[in-house]
Amino acid sequence: MTKVTMTVNGKTVSKEVEGRTLLSAMLREQLNLTGTHIGCDTSQCGACVVHVNGEAVKSCTMFAAEADGAEVKTIEGMANADGSLSTIQAAFQEHHGLQCGFCTPGMVMSAAALLKDNPKPSEAEVREYLEGNLCRCTGYHNIVKAIMAASGQDVPAVAAE
């Protein structure tokens, strides 16, 4: 067991972990941040995406020990300071970009990472960026719409149903 210390959603936390402890497991089991989900075991589904030092990573494919000293942000840290939904979260609700909600935390985290790097992505860029996030409910239509809307762009005319 080794001790790791990191900042999670602005709070400093220290935990004893095994070498094999994944960042996702530490978040879910030791910090009770269960918004980060596990949907596969081959690093494909993206339900576990969090930000480490500002970059989107799959927390199920990173050891907790590797995040020692890092700044980690999870879905629980995405709302505005007053608890209201952030622009991206609000856009997901407004445009029905979620159904069962299981992939949603990873989608929101990926969307945030995309918009940080590319504030006005095209529809194709949004779709391409979401390559590592699987959703089985929405057919992605409304997720793409929500992200386009969160970027302040008019959603494509075709997306108006």
Binding site: E55, A56, V57, K58, T61, M62, S110, A113, G132, N133
Partner: peptide
Amino acid sequence: IGDPAVRNR
């Protein structure tokens, strides 16, 4: 290669 999150690691 992979997807954005994979490319970050």
